[in-house]
Design a protein around this nucleic acid. Structure first.
Length: 831
RNA sequence: GCCUGGGUGGCGGAAUUGGCAGACGCUACGGACUUAAAAUCCGUUGAUCGCUACGAUCGUGUGGGUUCGACUCCCACCCCAGGCACCA
């Protein structure tokens, strides 16, 4: 028998599918229920698609085909995130302009995606580097500017000396550059910032309604880092102005035995006593230098100011210190030190021999120890002690009551702080969207008029990053020089570009808004009606690496557009699914240097697209990290070959009038039941993202069919065709070919997804597990679905196991779970 | 240190959420076909004992608990992966 020739057949169907524009999605079907199934669009690097892409994209393709066959209008687009550092670095290495080879990379990606049979609507393809696309990225930036969300500020920022550009906080992963893993330096640079912090609360709150993996939500929550507490004023003994500290643990205020200021606190030199001034100046200068260099001292240090503050609750006079362990950029840059109930304060107090007062105990019945030298640091909430009339309250009660008291005296206010910082939005690199602002000596910053958008990135030969904090665009004088839109005098363009993440903040909208004009040209225009139909994205699949980068930025961007009434929903991505990384065959992360990279092109060449798709789905649950197996793929190859052989066999059978196969009613019914069970299982597995299970079940069914044929049992054509339909989303090429082979002229894409018949499922035999004292001793197969305990007992008595285990024994109890188990508990069982 | 996941055969992984542990696939071993090999097909494959037909005992990171019954629930601990890390 002929082997399945995937090369020829995949090529044939692919060209037909493209020619027929089978996956074109119409917006006009507003009466039809919709699904928006989105992939994180790829970055078209020089290396081409990797197996990780294939994993996520296959999953969404299966879902897309599944929902389409179930009557949904499914939007499943793709595009390219082509601005950014890797493309630029690669271009620099090759001494070319990114714009000359990025289209080539895109073409390669497109070809690869096509060859895998992903059913994207290619008419909606976009690239963030298309001027029509980034015109709108710039336009949205200008809207933010006009709404006061954009500001320029000189600040210490993360700077990657290798990429030679400033980075956002989110791009610093454990102190290293997100892209190249070079340790990050701190530099003082004038940078454009976007006030993402203005959305902190909403970004946090709206996480609740999202169907996202818990750990991604958690990561975003931590990143936003909300803490609710009180700002408390401490009076100073020798200075008229009070000092403000921030605390989330107002309940521990009776235990505050000192105050600590950060090294950049404005009060330091106003309150430091002359005797301490020299040391203080040295210390602060030193620490500030370290801070500038981005050095984080693990060792706690500190110095006394000589001044004292008064604890507003108990009137204690407590010393004021300056230390490197208090951050200047958070809260008020000053804290109250409660060593008994904060580990860092504890370490500080121990080091400098400061008082420690215990004011919280674990529980009501705990003995309170008057001997403070034996106090242990205890950071959790508990019951107050040594706290005047507040003793005996729980921590949360005390916070409320002490807070209310201090507020009534005007000494405190409720305050919320976030860890989230504003988004540093300018990059000193060439390959990005130019920031559409103009610097005029007379008028200051002037936005580029909207009619002049896009500000096109000039094509130049030399665009080496300068490393000085200047953008390489600065040297392109003819581009920089421009008339001020407001006063017409000579002005300069802003030369910094936007970060990589800008384009991906709204690409999911662009797919909807794109209007194709010719094979190369398109327009984007905002259309709330279309957005209302398609948004939000129903299923979004992509890697975990974007947990606090893209996913946070895009949520923010969408919320801003929502506020402008340009998009209809608060949140862009309803359901998020993270595919797990595919590791190399050695169980380590794939990397060139380790030589364990699996290239999808090679696999397609050897096994074909269907096998690759299916194998990646069979590897394990989509969300877990799992190693590639070069042996394992053979299992899928064999399976598809068997399906192919089966169809050739059956084709012959259906074509011959007189077949030697027997039409057996009972067997046929059995097969039908198995088929409907399969429909049920595959449907369930797809909707719950358990593609590996769906494949396992199909394998079992294939074997059932084969066994029947080998035993000369006739298989109805409809049964086999239905099986092929189930296989189709996973392996579209071979399924379509078999469909065609068996005389079907249409495209499987246009077929309806099979529905299972619940009656067939419930008419099966029910298998009861017979247990004695909880141990399995046998099974009982019955047809009746409302078996009573007594009937069950009678049936069991007729089984051989009864004699062995139950005869002459006293049955204490029979546990009977309908449809599942019958458990005989014997009297002489364990006590 | 804190947070979030997770520990099931030689390996990747199943188990309808408390009811047959190890589906499906790979590997390995044995067999059929073949001059031979590959491919394909058939069988075996958690451990130990019985080892002949039936079978028996143990077994889901460790220790305890709840239950007629626990991979699944509860408590304590150990280990692995990812994230955050002076955020008061």
């Amino acid at each position: 028998m002929k082997k399945y020739n995937f090369k020829k057949i995949e090529k044939k169907w692919l060209s037909l599918w493209i020619k027929k524009r089978l996956w074109k999605v119409k917006d006009s079907l507003h009466h039809k229920k919709k699904k928006y199934i989105l992939d994180m669009f790829p970055y078209p690097s020089g290396e081409g698609l990797h197996v990780g892409h294939v994993e996520g994209y296959t999953a969404t393709d299966i879902l897309t085909r599944f929902y389409r066959m179930n009557g949904y209008n499914v939007l499943h687009p793709i595009g390219f995130d082509a601005f950014g550092l890797p493309a630029e670095n690669y271009a620099l290495k090759k001494k070319k302009n990114p714009s000359s080879f990025v289209p080539k990379n895109i073409a390669r990606y497109r070809k690869q995606l096509l060859s895998l049979g992903f059913s994207y609507d290619w008419d909606r393809e976009i690239s963030t580097t298309d001027p029509e696309y980034y015109k709108w990225t710039q336009w949205m930036f200008l809207q933010m500017y006009k709404h006061g969300l954009v500001y320029e500020k000189e600040a210490p920022i993360n700077f990657c000396p290798n990429c030679k550009t400033g980075l956002a906080d989110e791009e610093s992963i454990g102190g290293k550059c997100e892209r190249c893993e070079t340790p990050i330096e701190v530099r003082f640079l004038k940078q454009w910032h976007i006030k993402i912090t203005a959305y902190a609360e909403r970004l946090l709150e709206d996480l609740e309604e999202l169907d996202w993996p818990e750990h991604i939500k958690e990561m975003q929550k931590n990143w936003i880092g909300k803490s609710e507490g009180y700002e408390v004023k401490f009076a100073l003994t020798d200075y008229p102005e009070p000092l403000k500290i921030f605390t989330t643990r107002l309940d521990t205020i009776f235990g505050a035995t000192f105050i600590v200021l950060s090294v950049s606190h404005p009060l330091i030199f106003k309150i430091t006593k002359p005797d301490y001034m020299m040391f203080m100046e040295d210390y602060v200068r030193n620490e500030l230098k370290k801070e500038k260099l981005g050095i984080i001292d693990k060792e706690i240090s500190g110095i006394f100011t000589g001044s004292y503050a008064i604890n507003p609750m108990n009137g204690f006079k407590i010393p004021i210190w300056v230390s490197n362990y208090v951050l200047s950029g958070y809260g008020t840059g000053a804290i109250m030190g409660v060593p008994a109930h904060d580990e860092r304060d504890w370490n500080f107090a121990k080091k400098f021999n400061l008082d420690i007062i215990k004011v919280i105990k674990h529980s009501l019945d705990e003995e309170t120890n008057a001997d403070f030298t034996s106090v242990q640091c205890f950071t959790e909430d508990g019951i107050l002690i040594n706290s005047d009339k507040y003793s005996g309250l729980t921590s949360s009660e005390a916070r409320e009551q002490i807070g209310a008291y201090l507020i009534s005296l005007g000494l405190a206010e409720k305050k919320i702080y976030y860890k989230l910082r504003d988004w540093i939005f300018s990059r000193q690199r060439y390959w990005g969207e130019p920031i559409p602002l103009i610097r005029c000596n007379k008028c200051g910053i002037v936005p580029v008029p909207e009619k002049d958008l896009p500000v096109v990135l000039p094509k130049v030969k030399s665009y080496q990053p300068t490393g000085t904090g200047e953008s390489p665009l600065k040297n392109i004088h003819h581009w920089v020089r421009v008339k001020c839109p407001s006063c017409r005098s000579i002005a300069e363009r802003e030369t910094q570009t936007m970060p990589q993440w800008a384009g991906s903040c709204w690409y999911f909208l662009a797919y909807i808004l794109k209007k194709k004009q010719s094979s190369k040209k398109y327009k984007i225009s905002f259309d709330l009606k279309k957005l209302k139909y398609w948004m939000p994205v129903d299923i979004y699949v992509g890697g975990v690496e974007h947990a606090v980068l893209h996913l946070l930025y895009a949520r923010f961007w969408n919320k801003f557009l929502y506020d402008l009434n340009l998009v209809p929903c608060k949140e862009p991505f309803l359901k998020l699914f993270n595919q797990g990384i595919i590791l190399g065959p050695d169980g380590r992360k794939m990397s060139k240097s380790k030589g364990n990279v699996i290239n999808p092109d090679d696999i397609i060449k050897h096994y074909g697209a269907d096998t690759l798709r299916m194998f990646e789905m069979f590897l394990g649950p989509l969300e877990v990290e799992k190693p590639w197996s070069s042996e394992g793929i053979k299992g899928i190859e064999r399976f598809l070959q068997r399906v192919w052989k089966l169809s050739l066999w059956l084709d012959k059978v259906y074509k011959t009038k007189r077949t030697k196969l027997l039409k057996n009613k009972a067997k046929e019914q059995e097969l039908l039941i198995a088929l409907h069970k399969l429909i049920y299982e595959v449907t369930q597995s797809i909707t719950s993202f358990r593609f590996n299970i769906a494949i396992a079940k199909m394998m079992i069914f294939e074997e059932t069919l084969r066994r029947n044929l080998e035993n000369n049992v006739y298989i109805a054509k409809d049964i086999f065709l239905t099986f092929i339909k189930l296989l189709f989303p996973f392996a579209p090429f071979i399924s379509q070919e078999i469909w065609h082979l068996l005389g079907k002229k249409n495209f499987l894409d246009k077929e309806k997804w099979p529905q299972f018949n619940p009656k067939l499922l419930s008419s099966q035999l029910t298998t009861y597990i017979i247990q004695v004292n909880g141990k399995k001793r046998g099974v009982l197969e019955v047809k009746a679905d409302n078996l009573s305990v007594n009937e069950a007992k009678k049936l069991v008595q007729s089984l051989p196991l009864y004699k062995k285990y139950l005869e002459n024994k006293t049955i204490k109890q029979i546990i009977f779970v309908k449809g599942k188990v019958i458990n005989f508990v014997l009297a002489d069982a364990k006590s």
